[in-house]
Design a protein around this nucleic acid. Structure first.
Lengths: 129, 129
DNA sequence: CGGGATCCCCCGCGATACTG
DNA sequence: CAGTATCGCGGGGGATCCCG
């Protein structure tokens, strides 16, 4: 009772075996952020629409990413039993709570790309030249 | 001039060949966020200190992560030529501009771990049981 | 259309040993 | 102390085929 503040949650991603480490990994996954941001922009998307928008993803990885997101409660999967089948994906409130962060992350990467390129050029000039 | 807003930067991570895609990948890297957040918390850290704080990382991956961050201009590497050698790592202003986001991401993972666990349990009960 | 199943290759990554 | 070099494997992930 000497040093346990009540408001502190018990998770710490610095600890290898903390579940939040796995969650952090999942978020950082190559395709996760793009899928979430895409769904955030368009509200709800068909499988094929996602596939077209996220350039370079394979069907396997898109499906796998969506399954993980669904399992973690970040996206919903709604199947419309028409012929042929239609499937819509959308963010849950939980997924929506993450959207802002991932969108900022994507925007940060795009905004600071120039500075990073400069740093790389300077570093490569120092090292390789 | 019909559809080229001046304020829009030319990068788009949805495009597979856009450099910002690679940057986004780098940020999402398994160890990057933890390294940046650790440096943000402590200001400046020795290699060994980082190694101890980031549980589960191997020497190889820590070094590799630090080299990439240095190359991208996000961290500085300062060698003190004592015997034995001492090396300090710290965030650059650019790295510092990313720190807030990554810290929020880590905190999001820790705060919402419970909800994600619930979603997983519910999903697994539906699927597996 | 929206996937699941399978095959297979590549390389990310850990473990270990060595160096300035 | 702060790395580099090398080896070896496990699985991530693409390609392909098939199915409801």
């Amino acid at each position: 009772m000497t040093s346990t503040p009540l408001l502190e949650h018990p998770f710490d991603a610095f600890n290898a075996h903390c579940p939040s480490r796995r969650l952090l990994d999942a978020i950082g996954d190559k395709w996760t952020s793009l899928v979430v941001v895409a769904l955030g922009v368009h509200g709800s998307l068909r499988y094929t629409e996602l596939f077209k928008r996220i350039d370079g993803v394979s069907q396997k990885m898109l499906t796998q990413t969506l399954r993980n997101l669904e399992r973690d409660g970040l996206v919903t999967r709604t199947v419309t039993p028409t012929v042929p089948v239609g499937t819509d994906y959308a963010l849950t409130p939980l997924g929506d709570s993450l959207l802002g962060l991932l969108r900022l992350l994507k925007e940060w990467a795009e905004e600071h790309m120039g500075e990073v390129d400069d740093a790389r050029a300077a570093h490569d000039a120092r090292t390789g030249g």
